[in-house]
Design a protein around this nucleic acid. Structure first.
Length: 816
RNA sequence: GCGGACGUGGCGUAAUUGGUAGCCGCGCUAGACUUAGGAUCUAGUGCCGAAAGGCGUGGGGGUUCGAGUCCCUUCGUCCGCACCA
């Protein structure tokens, strides 16, 4: 048989489409598998990363189907987002047109790969039907108290009149117009993800060994739980007076209560209320006020790159235990968002506090002693030890001291034990056009009011002009003017749109529901209860934190709202490695891209898929290699070229194993070893490279013999196990030989693994020196005798001091 | 700085989980068939050595009859986080 992939591939793609071969069954009694590769952003063309992502997911989906599962393997488009607006500015096109044209083009590209998607469930997140339900979800969350508005400091470009994402700020300048980016307080909507911080952390345990440990660690660090003591510093009476009695105390947080006797100053973040008050009322010298303003101007990110600095606020606080006066400073390294924006500073036992104290010559008080790391004043001693110089607590170990101090504070109502998280609430406001509008209305009388359900979706206006300056929804002549849903008076629409991570946080739930219900509901509870969780999620490691954390958060919120029941969205996660060329990531700017379309038109989709799954295990980086692609192509050609060695049948022919030649027996063994490998790797390692290697070995072994039944069996099994990887050619072969009857679970044939004799290695002092073939029932003593005979040459003039026999493996003789 | 992962032929990788290191493929060498081959087929291919043999999983040490695999140490590469008190 000739290998004409240009005929075979379109033929089967058409067949699958016409027969709805890959649509899931709405029969919820069947065992299911939900296999999902992360959906793509429609940037214009697919790249090799997509090919890898979808080849992996498709192989898993096809394997599950073959094993009798009801399989959901959907695809869609993450189609809101900035690139559409950038393209609009650059090419004077409309974001919607640009996006949907890209989707049409990329859909065709993906079609040529022969992926077994449940195509009827395809959608784009920019579809107004999706937006409608999404806005309803937003309102439900709002009603549940999970959405709130607050002002926060954001990157603002005054020239472009827009907020910039962190990655759009380059060296403090706007990426587009190069003018200075300033920090500006802006109101925005926030989701209370912090309310779920503990559960998000706890449930990581459920994912152990099912998600890459790296991802779990990253999420754990990101959530950043820490336990400590929260207490108030009272201002001294002089200081209170200076502040016009506006403030009398402020709150601090520490994870090291055991070091509290080492406090020698306290520091506030530049944005702290007290600092602001001092600046507004000009209670400090002009010079100091200017310095504070300079500190405030820098973003948190930039502050982390500059040297620590600060100044004395000319205020003092009272140490809660010693009652001594402690100077109060403002410092640029204190973060406003964490722990109340204020710290107790213990320079002797904290590196940051130490650095600052040295710079400004503040006193350094030792309060912990440790034999291993003596404190000599040259650097901070941050390890645990025993409390010294600590009043009644002197002598306690750090860990006992922490407990004792905390208890003392609680008993005397000075403070309490608290848990803090690094995780912040999720700001979802974007001052941009191409996103889902936030469905809220601002009414002068009623305040903030959600849009009425029957008025959803709040759709984007089409007649906009995108210049890159300002928010097109804000500048649109009519769009934002509306009536208040409560009182009916004139009101304004919210013109912010949602972060695109909002869409990707629930798209996997949408897929679970038959499209006939999509108009009515975002997703159907029965359907999602059946299909969720996703049994295997496949995607890039770059989403390790944000997308995966947000999706986990949404799953829990939607559970608590009663819309679905699962606790975790993705039961198993596979993070694929990048596709490299010449050692670095493929990118247009480096000019080292390989176009999937070119590879497919030259070698076919099966070759592209085979190469990409063969060249490396899926989790690892993959180095592109043109001649290895050629090698994959040759294997398929060889596989196809021997088809006439097999004969037509709808099942494996009966074979009398004992009567076969040695070569045929070996070939059968190799074939079933490959089948065994297939069963193993789909358990979860997904090391397709080893499965492909086994299949190649099997084909090579078949080639060494000429028994037609063994050939038939070989093709029956090999086209079964290779179907998930090179589906078109396997369907062609199966159709020709087996009437498509071999795409089911094939039982292992145990007799081919039974041997009458085995080869044992003979090692002398652990080094292989010879080998012997022995019958399987030969006794240990006889085997050792035989081994000594065989290795006689190595035993001359030696004394055997130990004989080790490992059944089925080797004989080791220890000699002197 | 902290945390994590990984170092195996010329290259991509494999190794039944402590038991014969290098499966499979790329590349390379030789041969066959060919007017021709960047097609196909056959054989060979870790390194040194004519051979016997020796060496060999980044380096050093250890445990063991036996280590790519376990432990300690060191070097290197990659990734993540980065003032979270």
């Amino acid at each position: 048989m000739e290998y004409n992939f240009k005929d075979i591939e379109p033929k089967w793609q058409k067949y699958w489409k016409e027969n709805n071969s890959f649509e899931p069954k709405n029969d919820f009694t069947k065992e299911k598998k939900y296999i999902l590769s992360m959906f793509p952003y429609p940037s214009g063309k697919i790249h090799m990363g997509h090919v890898r992502n979808y080849s992996i997911g498709d192989a898993i989906a096809r394997n599950s189907r073959k094993n009798g599962y009801n399989v959901l393997h959907p695809i869609g488009w993450d189609s809101f987002g900035m690139p559409a607006e950038n393209a609009a500015i650059k090419h004077k096109t409309h974001p919607k047109k640009w996006t949907y044209e890209n989707i049409d083009y990329m859909r065709k590209e993906l079609d040529t790969l022969g992926l077994s998607f449940s195509k009827k469930r395809e959608f784009s997140t920019s579809d107004t039907l999706y937006t409608k339900h999404e806005q309803k979800i937003f309102i439900d969350m709002y009603k549940k108290g999970l959405v709130y508005q607050k002002s926060a400091s954001l990157n603002w470009c005054d020239t472009c009149q827009t907020v910039l994402a962190n990655e759009q700020v380059e060296d403090g300048k706007c990426w587009r117009c190069d003018s200075d980016v300033v920090q500006k307080d802006m109101a925005g909507y926030y989701l209370k993800i912090t309310q779920y911080a503990q559960e998000l952390l706890d449930d990581l345990k459920k994912l152990e060994s099912k998600w890459p440990s790296q991802v779990l660690t990253m999420q754990e660090n990101w959530i950043g739980r820490s336990e400590g003591l929260e207490f108030d510093f009272s201002l001294s009476s002089d200081s209170k007076k200076k502040l016009n009695d506006k403030f009398d105390k402020f709150r601090v947080f520490t994870t090291r209560p055991d070091t509290i006797y080492g406090v020698s100053y306290s520091a506030l973040a530049p944005e702290h209320e007290i600092v602001k008050f001092l600046v507004e009322h000009k209670l400090l010298s002009d010079e100091k006020i200017k310095k504070i303003k300079d500190m405030q101007r820098l973003s948190a990110r930039d502050r982390s790159m500059v040297e620590k600095e600060g100044l004395y606020l000319e205020l003092d606080v009272v140490h809660p235990l010693t009652k001594k006066k402690v100077p109060l400073w403002v410092a640029n390294f204190v973060l406003i968002e964490y722990g109340g924006g204020a710290v107790m500073a213990v320079p002797a036992h904290d590196e940051r506090d130490f650095e600052f104290a040295k710079k400004y010559d503040l006193s350094i008080i030792q309060s912990i002693e440790n034999k291993k790391q003596k404190f000599d004043g040259s650097c901070a001693m941050t390890q645990y030890g025993f409390m010294v110089n600590s009043g009644n607590f002197t002598g306690l170990s750090s860990s006992d001291g922490k407990v004792a101090i905390t208890e003392y504070f609680e008993k005397n109502r000075l403070g309490k034990k608290v848990v803090n998280y690094k995780l912040r609430d999720w700001g979802i406001s974007r001052q941009r056009y191409w996103g889902a509008p936030i469905p809220m209305i601002h009414c002068e009388k009623c305040g903030l009011v959600p849009v009425a359900k029957e008025n959803l979706p709040v759709a984007l206006p089409d007649d906009i002009e995108i210049t890159g300056e300002g928010n097109p929804l804000q500048t649109h002549p009519t769009w934002k003017y509306t009536k208040c849903p409560k009182c009916g008076s004139d009101a304004l629409r919210e013109t912010d749109t949602m972060d695109t991570f909002f869409q990707s946080s629930w798209y996997f739930l949408r897929y679970t529901t038959d499209p006939s219900l999509w108009e009515e509901v975002p997703f159907d509870k029965k359907s999602s209860d059946y299909w969720m969780s996703v049994d295997q999620y496949v995607g890039g490691i770059e989403h390790a934190i944000l997308h995966l954390l947000y999706a986990r958060f949404f799953t829990k919120v939607l559970r608590d709202i009663g819309m679905q029941s699962s606790d975790e969205p993705f039961k198993n996660l596979l993070t694929q490695g990048m596709v490299l060329k010449d050692g670095s990531k493929m990118s247009k700017s480096k000019g080292n891209t390989v176009d999937p379309d070119e590879i497919i038109s030259r070698y076919g989709a099966d070759t592209a898929r085979l190469f990409i799954l063969f060249a490396a295990p899926p989790q690892k980086e993959l180095e592109w290699n043109d001649s290895a692609v050629e090698g994959a192509f040759k294997f398929i050609k060889r596989f196809v070229s021997r088809v006439q060695m097999a004969s037509k049948s709808e099942k494996i022919p009966t074979i009398e194993h004992i009567k076969l030649s040695k070569e045929s027996k070996y070939a059968r063994k190799k074939v079933y070893e490959a089948l065994k490998k297939s069963n193993e790797i789909f358990e979860g390692t997904y090391t397709f490279n080893t499965l492909i290697a086994s299949s190649m070995e099997a084909l090579n072994a078949l080639n060494q013999q000429d028994n037609s039944s063994v050939w038939s069996e070989g093709y029956f099994v090999l086209s079964n196990i290779l179907e998930p990887i090179i589906p078109h050619v396997c369907w062609e072969i199966s159709d020709l030989l087996f009437g498509l009857k071999n795409f089911t679970k094939i039982p292992l044939c145990e007799e081919v693994f039974e041997e009458e004799s085995i080869i044992l290695a003979i090692t002398i002092n652990g080094k292989k020196r010879a080998q012997i073939e022995v019958g399987i029932d030969l006794q240990k003593e006889d085997i050792i005798d035989k081994a000594k005979e065989e290795a006689g040459k190595w035993l001359e003039d030696k004394i055997i001091i130990k004989e080790i026999f490992v059944p089925g493996k080797l004989v080791n003789l220890v000699v002197k």
